[in-house]
Amino acid sequence: MTFEILTLDTLTNEVQVQVAALYKQLNADNKQRSLQEILHSKNNVLVLLCKVDSAVVGIALLSTYTVISGFRGMVDDVVVDRSQRGKGIGKKLMNKLIEESAKIGLDEILLFTGHHRKPAIALYTSLGFELRKSGLYSLKI
């Protein structure tokens, strides 16, 4: 099992296809953006892959931004292949994102997850994430 930060230089068509298939396990209905678009230099997104041999079995993304209240990161699209769940891959992905966040000097890491995703909630709380007492509002454009 290896972990790597994906870059435009290391992106291949095979990785794009594997990540697209993996993401469908999280949300088959969402329109996916290409990894080339995500990795664009002005996008400020770190894409972390977990591989077993050459197969992508897990992903996690971290977007960074600066606002008046601090330098923040937002975790999105954490997915572990169904066949690999229960092996600690999700925890390792999150720990790697936390390490990278500390390296670049983030003040805070945020994430959203559905209330029905009990295993994800258990993972995030075990890592020290706390539920904010605020509402999330969304407007589809």
Rank of each mutant, 00 (worst) to 15 (best):
residue 2 T to F: 01
residue 4 E to L: 11
residue 5 I to Y: 05
residue 6 L to Q: 12
residue 6 L to T: 13
residue 7 T to L: 02
residue 8 L to Q: 13
residue 8 L to F: 03
residue 9 D to L: 08
residue 12 T to A: 06
residue 13 N to C: 03
residue 13 N to L: 10
residue 13 N to V: 08
residue 14 E to H: 04
residue 15 V to S: 10
residue 16 Q to S: 10
residue 16 Q to Y: 05
residue 18 Q to G: 03
residue 18 Q to I: 07
residue 18 Q to E: 13
residue 20 A to S: 12
residue 20 A to I: 04
residue 20 A to F: 04
residue 20 A to W: 04
residue 21 A to Q: 13
residue 21 A to L: 09
residue 23 Y to L: 13
residue 23 Y to K: 06
residue 23 Y to C: 08
residue 24 K to G: 02
residue 24 K to V: 01
residue 26 L to N: 05
residue 27 N to H: 01
residue 27 N to W: 08
residue 28 A to I: 12
residue 28 A to F: 07
residue 29 D to P: 02
residue 29 D to Q: 05
residue 31 K to R: 09
residue 32 Q to P: 07
residue 32 Q to I: 07
residue 33 R to E: 14
residue 36 Q to Y: 02
residue 37 E to V: 10
residue 38 I to D: 00
residue 38 I to A: 10
residue 40 H to D: 14
residue 41 S to H: 10
residue 41 S to T: 11
residue 44 N to V: 01
residue 44 N to T: 01
residue 44 N to P: 14
residue 45 V to P: 09
residue 45 V to I: 15
residue 45 V to E: 14
residue 51 K to H: 14
residue 52 V to S: 02
residue 53 D to L: 14
residue 55 A to Q: 14
residue 55 A to T: 08
residue 55 A to C: 05
residue 57 V to C: 00
residue 59 I to M: 14
residue 60 A to V: 08
residue 60 A to I: 10
residue 61 L to P: 01
residue 61 L to A: 02
residue 62 L to V: 02
residue 62 L to R: 00
residue 63 S to W: 05
residue 65 Y to D: 09
residue 65 Y to W: 15
residue 65 Y to H: 10
residue 69 S to M: 12
residue 70 G to R: 02
residue 71 F to K: 11
residue 72 R to L: 11
residue 73 G to I: 04
residue 75 V to M: 02
residue 76 D to I: 07
residue 76 D to C: 05
residue 77 D to C: 04
residue 77 D to F: 00
residue 78 V to M: 08
residue 79 V to N: 05
residue 81 D to T: 04
residue 81 D to S: 03
residue 82 R to E: 12
residue 82 R to T: 09
residue 83 S to G: 05
residue 85 R to H: 09
residue 86 G to F: 07
residue 87 K to F: 04
residue 88 G to W: 01
residue 92 K to T: 04
residue 94 M to R: 00
residue 95 N to G: 13
residue 98 I to R: 00
residue 98 I to F: 02
residue 99 E to D: 11
residue 100 E to Y: 01
residue 101 S to R: 03
residue 102 A to P: 11
residue 103 K to V: 14
residue 103 K to Q: 07
residue 103 K to P: 00
residue 104 I to Q: 08
residue 106 L to I: 04
residue 106 L to W: 01
residue 106 L to Q: 06
residue 107 D to C: 00
residue 111 L to D: 09
residue 112 F to M: 15
residue 112 F to R: 15
residue 112 F to D: 15
residue 114 G to R: 04
residue 116 H to S: 10
residue 116 H to C: 07
residue 117 R to F: 09
residue 117 R to N: 06
residue 117 R to K: 14
residue 118 K to T: 12
residue 120 A to T: 09
residue 120 A to Y: 05
residue 120 A to C: 07
residue 121 I to E: 08
residue 122 A to P: 02
residue 125 T to M: 04
residue 127 L to Q: 13
residue 127 L to K: 07
residue 128 G to K: 13
residue 128 G to Y: 11
residue 129 F to K: 08
residue 130 E to H: 11
residue 131 L to F: 00
residue 133 K to N: 14
residue 136 L to I: 15
residue 139 L to W: 15
